[in-house]
Design a protein around this nucleic acid. Sequence first.
DNA 1: ACGCGTTACTAACACGCGTTAGTTTCTCCC
DNA 2: GGGAGAAACTAACGCGTGTTAGTAACGCGT
Lengths: 351, 351
Amino acid sequence: MQGRRSSSRDVATLAGVSRTTVSFVLNDRPDANISAATRERVLAAAAQLGYQPHAAARGLAGGRSHTIGLVLRQSAEQVAEDALLAETLRGVSGAARAQGYRVLVEPFGALDGSYGDLIRSHRADGLVVSGPRVDDAELQALAASGAPLVVQGTLPGVDAPSVDVDNVAAAKVAVRHLVDLGHRRIACVTNASLSYTAARDRLNGYREALAEAGIAEDPHLVAEADFSAASGRRAMAGLLEHDGITAVFVASDVVAFGAIAAIRGAGRRVPDDISVVGFDDIPLAAYFDPPLTSIRLPAHDLGRAVGTALLDRITGRSVEARTMLPTELVIRSSTAPPPTGPRSRDGPEPS
Amino acid sequence: MQGRRSSSRDVATLAGVSRTTVSFVLNDRPDANISAATRERVLAAAAQLGYQPHAAARGLAGGRSHTIGLVLRQSAEQVAEDALLAETLRGVSGAARAQGYRVLVEPFGALDGSYGDLIRSHRADGLVVSGPRVDDAELQALAASGAPLVVQGTLPGVDAPSVDVDNVAAAKVAVRHLVDLGHRRIACVTNASLSYTAARDRLNGYREALAEAGIAEDPHLVAEADFSAASGRRAMAGLLEHDGITAVFVASDVVAFGAIAAIRGAGRRVPDDISVVGFDDIPLAAYFDPPLTSIRLPAHDLGRAVGTALLDRITGRSVEARTMLPTELVIRSSTAPPPTGPRSRDGPEPS
DNA sequence: ACGCGTTACTAACACGCGTTAGTTTCTCCC
DNA sequence: GGGAGAAACTAACGCGTGTTAGTAACGCGT
């Protein structure tokens, strides 16, 4: 079908025009005057040869790589546990492809902070930085140098647009759901170390919800996890040493799976003895036992939004400094009213 | 810190040498004779300027993009459900980076078969094709044209190296585990449609294990799922209409989660009434209730192996036509001996 | 003093495209 | 008929690098 790689010169020769004309036609230059007949001839020639511009040559001449980088700033273990990565990636990639861009994924953001090389070497025209941390010097420097980058998540003090969900509000909705069911002694397991802004925000949402309900916060009822189910189990096991807990807000579904394992391990039942609300609504949440009540995080939309924002930034369009996507509480079976008596199993109705 | 982008010419000027010498030093050309003093001076100048070669220029001149493509041939839903994608990606990316390569991810392999453009436009020097299907015309054409590509999975009849686990043998081990526990009436839920070779192989392993145990196969005990937990629930619900099933081999953990939901929905217990073996050993398998017995799939190693194989192919080193990675049966709590009586709850011991 | 091989370096081309400045052809109106 | 302006196209440069062919300096033996 195809002999050897064909260049733009081959197309020009076949169509009987100059290389410049070929370039004008294929790139749809609006100010160029190309007759309909010529345009047709060029397109036919290109199709016949299966012509595909050489990406490097295009990038060199045009000063644009038509590639964006997706930098995962989390550690290897965290990346592995990220059940929503695939969806986010699809969203970013979809947004990119719609404008002729492709996505380079850099999953070692945490290994060495050298992802700035992607920009410096013009391998990528811009970066989506996911899972930013407050102590990210590379990110600060990159943003200061004016590199096109968009943060997925929240990172105050960095001069770059960001896309995120409102973690505070979402966590608040989750905890309020527990309050509405009648719970008063509600624990919290964070999704990660508090050096992650998302973890901090979700914890703050928990606190605000308690405050609004007039419940005094007990610092002993807050435990930190670090993305993994194993850490959730450990954190929850610690919390269970305190009496009277009837509900937990766990700021990540994966961590919640571990927490539930700990609850079961202690001989308690979900939701009969302890209600659990998760966060993220990963695909498996609905198939867990019990099906997990959670906050749905629009992973695909997040990816698309962050990709679109970056491309807007690259192409000089205006970008909102902050985009917030809506979340939604998905109520399943891991939450119920608190037990009435010490061992009552009847379903009491909240007033 | 950095003024404007510095080119190789700036480095040459600063070091007091020619641009060619700079190129020789930075690329470590073995046949070039560069004095230690000059080499030192060049490296110092490059470091001082923070010099980073322009990727497009390098690619154009060298004819190599230093990028490999990771093509996900599964549908969007399947990609979303793929809990091991992150690990595989890390493996591929790690292998690539070790040789100065980066990874471009193409998650829309199923949308349009146009991933060949990555090769034709020289955007990528080679492709890792994951989740191949027998009816992939693009793949056939690409392989025939001599494009460097490596298949992750199994696809007979395509002239390209492949990396995979031995799905037949692994499935056999899983089913033999059930047989050894004393089960005789063992059902199977596939992980996907049988147009996927992995699904077919795992089913064959199931059949071989039954045959070796002298158990006649009942075609009614095999049901197809399609990657999702929802499909697993449906498939299992159908199987439960047949009497006497005491164990199921489900060729995917995610699907198994759905299957377990169906079993519970029918009022049966795992493993007391029905044992379940999964496949993949996704991170959450250990935290499911009950913790899932499964076949561990070395996702990270698979990624690294397939990445390394592709790079070997690109750089002209010899590549084995077929690499098989080992799997391992991880026994947890979703499998147990079959119930002795119609409703016995005691733990019987297999003889 | 001269030739010869080795060492250390450089000038200049090629990669394939986008793009600016310039040229030719065509149309129209006085 | 002739000049002006628009329409349609092209020649040639530049992007930043890798690489080949070629040159200058140097050591050394005769």
